[in-house]
């Protein structure tokens, strides 16, 4: 059996990796504090209110993480226009022929787990594949929902100018109650997509051994030499 040559390809630039991990951290903090805010546990008994401020601190943490999250999203949005081709907005565009073909292929090979008879080099995605791109678009939409409902709810308890930009959100939804429910409910698909995302990263790493996991630390993935050459050709054409 012939062994294959793999080349190191710089896929995830530093801002992308930074975004990924800061975002993961912010979302984790937001989800944990969010759950606590929605249903605070009993951690103290028979105290006076002036003895403690723990719930206030939890909420404060939630708001700080929300700002961090927002800044990261804005940075990533900017990077979609100046980053490399794996980070650019075009990598998320799901309506080209190539993208649709890729979606069909991923559905067949990775979701339904069927095997290709003849492997095509073009089918190997160097960055994320198009189904993953769809998941990230869903993420982005959910993030917007969270940001708008979150800051909309926050506006009534803040005097600073930024949250005031969102004061229209709550009346549009009909009140704090609905806004809060949307904010709470939209968290669940984020959790679910995140779980699937983590699983699929492990799956690709396990099956393909191309450094899927480490790429988000180092930025490099390993790509078959032939794929690199064909990709070069593609670009020249």
């Amino acid at each position: 059996m012939q062994t294959r040559n793999f080349k190191r390809a710089y896929v995830w630039q530093l801002p992308v990796r930074l975004f990924h991990w800061m975002n993961a951290l912010a979302i984790t903090v937001l989800i944990i504090t969010g759950f606590i805010i929605a249903d605070p546990p009993v951690i103290m008994d028979h105290h006076e209110a002036n003895d403690a401020y723990w719930f206030g601190i939890v909420r404060f943490t939630h708001f700080v993480a929300a700002y961090a999250f927002l800044i990261m999203i804005l940075m990533r949005f900017y990077w979609a226009f100046v980053g490399n081709k794996y980070a650019r907005w075009a990598a998320y565009w799901p309506f080209s022929n190539k993208a649709i073909k890729n979606i069909m292929h991923v559905m067949k090979v990775d979701v339904l787990l069927l095997n290709d008879k003849n492997k095509e080099l073009r089918d190997i995605s160097v960055g994320h594949n198009t189904v993953a791109a769809l998941a990230y678009i869903a993420f982005f939409v959910l993030f917007l929902v969270m940001i708008f409902t979150g800051f909309g709810l926050y506006a009534s308890m803040s005097a600073s100018w930024f949250p005031q930009l969102f004061t229209w959100v709550v009346p549009m939804l009909g009140g704090d109650f609905t806004a809060r429910m949307v904010h709470h409910f939209a968290m669940w698909p984020i959790i679910l997509i995140a779980i699937i995302h983590i699983y699929l990263v492990f799956y690709h790493e396990w099956l393909e051994g191309r450094g899927e996991v480490s790429s988000m630390f180092s930025g490099y993935k390993f790509v078959r030499t032939e794929r690199v050459i064909s990709s070069d050709k593609e670009e020249k054409e």
Partner: peptide, 9 residues
């Protein structure tokens, strides 16, 4: 409200 901020429910 102080009980809320103190997490006493």
């Amino acid at each position: 409200r102080p009980y809320y901020d103190a997490g006493l429910f």
